[in-house]
Design a protein around this nucleic acid. Structure first.
Lengths: 345, 345
DNA sequence: AATTTTCTGATTTACGTACCTCAAATTTTC
DNA sequence: GAAAATTTGAGGTACGTAAATCAGAAAATT
């Protein structure tokens, strides 16, 4: 049988009350006694029964997810995953709530963070927008000992506890590598389509992409980055114009959302010479385009994994427990039409 | 506050004992009363507090992992992950043990399964070898209501509860798609290297690979499959011979283990024309080969994910709880030298 | 040495569920 | 309608930990 607090008391020759004081870092224990108890804990290999502890505390964990609003497919999927986590929450004594803020709006995000802070949650997950004010707001949360996890887009220079998202530089590098090899030496310029350079994930993808293109495939020139603001209509227009302006374009890297616009633009030029396309995020639209051959590969971050990881990490941090590093690393999924997972609605 | 058993009792107008009888499916409750209680449960939205229930039961979960012995890197990594899970086990009242059986040996596996069955564990995870006897042995476990999860290699036709592994047909298809596109029309035969056709995962990968090659890249002929038995020495010899016999070979698909032998063979022919190589399983050796450019892409199944998934599913099945489908789907990771994760020893 | 302060022990209650016993009420059977 | 069988109620103990109280012991201060 696993050792219990009683066993610690017996092993250390102290009372249960003292063990409790040590375990829960309560005051009123001399250093020598505390050491004796800690040695006993070590010696008999005690590990606190978290379930029993939480039961006794009748503790609940209020977690808040701060997500961008807007109608981008990926973010909608992310929100659905948070809702799924909400539904499972009670099983683990967690209560998850969602706060929405306009996309790419640092000021609104800061306001939301401060508002959330006032409710003293057990943890916060946030899709970050990069700005010094946001960093400061996150640091205020941390100063209140509230665990913070950045989700999808990281916040460098902040005191966030963890980033639940993919390595976006690697994603960009991978996109370049795939695109370069799929082109197999066919010369011509390459277009890059982004949402906004205000979010770190997009910038990092571009950096990674540029690095590998320059290094391994110097024959291709990169056209100026198209910023579509993750807006399908704007994107379609800009892409069509760009392709018309550079008719020899052989490849496109779409590193943000707004793929609906890209796909629409591609469909309009059916008879033109083929263009190799690498896009991000597997949605209904990119999946269809992949199957039709309009898109050659999709790099995806699994929103479900990210949300579940964020929840696990928040819980662990709130409990002061350890996180399993390897479990919380989110890999970039590469989908070709040959390894698409079955759709589940 | 969450409703408790007391609330059910009050809502249904029965005693706590009756609620308990209904909840734990004990005999001695009239149908009408049972219905009343179940309706009350539904109405007030009661969910059993699993932590408290397990505490009360002081239940522990003895799980057994049956793994192949031998010195194949992937299986060693898998075993290490099981050990990691063992170490974390006590936190969730799980006791995990490992049973090793010779690789590719159906008879030994059946013996092991029956021996394990005699110990009445709360769940069994097994790397399956396909044979009717193994299926029967697994079904005996299931007949004893012991949850069974197949790990890495599935067992079609058996009553196993779940398969914790990747879609190997998709893996083979993906390999073909990548290889075909990386070759970019360069003609020539393609060699396939397998471990043994006795395990389902290898056969499925080959099937998927063949299908896409035939369909999308009919220009390439497939050389006869080399069966290296996951043995580095044998593999090196066979691969060298095959390459010497077909000097025009442009691609190699290594769908099993034994990559050390393959890499050794590739190194020996440094000056020969380049061969595009797709291999399976990211190990120290394949990682190095990827970085050196000897291998072009590695398809990987994350052993850590598989083990953790198997554990979660076994626990859920033992508890009679639901599993989160999307969480338990194991994706194939595609690694190029550009998206290699940091090594952690 | 007396007093104050700090530390420690003993004991109790609570968390939500499981499981047991025994008696009482109800239903079924003849 | 009585006896038998079944169903229900009431109450308790247990699981391992948290948190509290209060008394007593030890240490520090005067």
């Amino acid at each position: 049988m696993r050792p219990t607090v009683h066993d610690i008391a017996a092993a250390a020759g102290v009372s249960l009350a003292t063990v409790d004081r040590v375990l829960n870092k309560r005051a009123g224990v001399r250093k020598v006694t505390r050491d004796r108890v800690e040695q006993a804990i070590e010696r008999i290999g005690y590990v606190r029964d978290v379930a029993a502890a939480n039961l006794a505390k009748s503790r609940i964990y209020p977690f808040v997810f701060i997500l961008p609003s807007g109608d981008n497919s990926f973010m909608r999927g992310l929100e659905a995953e948070v809702h799924a986590a909400m539904a499972r929450g009670p099983l683990e004594r967690m209560v998850i709530s969602i706060v929405k803020v306009p996309a790419f709006d640092a000021e609104a995000l800061v306001a939301a963070l401060d508002e959330v802070r006032a409710t003293a949650p057990a943890g916060v997950a946030v899709v970050a927008v990069e700005s010094p004010e946001v960093i400061a707001a996150v640091n205020r949360l941390r100063a209140d000992r509230i665990p913070v996890v950045t989700l999808v887009s990281d916040l460098a220079g902040s005191a966030r506890d963890h980033f639940a998202g993919v390595d976006n530089v690697a994603a960009g590098r991978t996109a370049a590598s795939l695109l370069g090899r799929f082109l197999g030496g066919r010369p011509g310029p390459i277009a890059v389509l982004a949402g906004s350079m205000l979010v770190r994930d997009h910038r990092e993808r571009l950096d990674g992409f540029r690095a590998v293109m320059d290094e391994d495939f110097p024959g291709h020139t990169l056209l100026p980055v198209i910023e579509g603001q993750d807006d399908p209509v704007l994107t379609e227009k800009l892409v069509s114009e760009a392709l018309a302006a550079s008719p020899g374009t052989v490849g496109i890297y779409s590193l943000g959302a707004g793929n609906r616009g890209l796909i629409a633009a591609l469909k309009q030029r059916k008879d033109a010479p083929p263009v190799c396309v690498i896009a991000h995020e597997l949605t209904r639209h990119t999946r269809a385009a992949l199957n039709e051959g309009l898109i050659d590969a999709v790099l995806n971050q699994d929103a479900g994994h990210e949300v579940r990881s964020a929840v696990r990490v928040l819980k662990a941090k709130a409990d002061g427990a350890a996180v399993i590093g390897a479990q919380e690393r989110i890999y970039i999924d590469i989908f070709l039409k040959d390894n698409l997972p079955f759709d589940e609605g």
